[in-house]
Design a protein around this nucleic acid. Sequence first.
DNA 1: CCTACCGATCGGTAGG
DNA 2: CCTACCGATCGGTAGG
Lengths: 211, 211
Amino acid sequence: MGRIVPGRYGTKKDVITKKASRLFKEKGFSATSMRDLAEAIGIEAPSLYNHISGKSEILQEICFKVANLFTSHLNEVETGNIPVLQKIDRIIRFHIHMMLDEYESVYISDHEWKHLREPYLSNFKNQRRNYRARVAAIILEGIERREIKNIDPYVAVLTMLSAIGGIEMWQRSKKSVDAKTLEENIVCIFIEGIREQPVNQEILHSIKAGN
Amino acid sequence: MGRIVPGRYGTKKDVITKKASRLFKEKGFSATSMRDLAEAIGIEAPSLYNHISGKSEILQEICFKVANLFTSHLNEVETGNIPVLQKIDRIIRFHIHMMLDEYESVYISDHEWKHLREPYLSNFKNQRRNYRARVAAIILEGIERREIKNIDPYVAVLTMLSAIGGIEMWQRSKKSVDAKTLEENIVCIFIEGIREQPVNQEILHSIKAGN
DNA sequence: CCTACCGATCGGTAGG
DNA sequence: CCTACCGATCGGTAGG
């Protein structure tokens, strides 16, 4: 095999990161050896170290690339002058798109982050906690404006984000449900699930009143 | 250290499985060595093999114990002559309770099953696929009866189950939200998220009666 | 990007 | 349940 050539696949490091994403996703970070990775690329294991400093650097690249994309998107959403439910709608759709477009990276960021080394581990956990707190703040605002029902904002955030995180298995059976149906169904479930519903409240009231 | 004594912690094998659950959850299956496990228990690594045949047997015990609990509960729910939304309500609550009571085992069953060996790996995947298909069938029935809105049943199942699977992080910050609030919030989001709207009084009644 | 190689650690066995 | 130990494999380095 010749050397890895930069080109339409990006730098050599990008090629390594891409191949590693697939392997880490399929076998897990710890169960993937540098020899597995090298073989998948078509080089010998020691050659990898010309492009990366070590196995954990690859994991760092993947996890923070994903985390930064989510953070950047949230920055945009927060500054927009749109209704709260529309903000939540945008966040949900972005998560779904990330899962469909970059599902290997997102999967690793969701499931393998614990193998990050310090100080990256702490940084990652902080960034994640911060992200969730900011989304929870949006939901809280919606509750105060009576656009969203009175639920615990953090429960709502975790429920939504982990639900979308679970659709990775989806990728394999793309045929059965197309992406658009998937997206609209999920958005529908959550938006109507968290939205304040005056009709239901009225019915509930009339039941309690004994009508 | 003396030998592991059976007693209020169950058999020696149970003690090993319990300790392993914690370690597999914190470090991952592959990153947990038999020496880590032995040290946590207070014995030498080779002594473990008097009680178990190998590392993968422990993972099998954990994964299938969880899978069988879910399957057993679904068997009960299916045979019950209750409205569809109430069946879904029961399933959701069972998943939440499992997550709160046995979160280490459930976490491993959710995240580490890929490290199972054949034929256990195939058996586990089959059992899981079967479980989801059966829950999807319940949802489909609800759609046909116009109790549930017209969404893809399998998307609804994955959304619900993976959302609940994500609340494991919850365990750590028990203080911030009590279990009852957590449960009611999640049930509320999903039941109202999938219910056909406008609501009719009968369904609301049956849900309330089910609690 | 390769060959040659390192110390550490792995899951597991032999034998008592 | 222990000590002693096995072959295999790990992440990574030296040197070219």
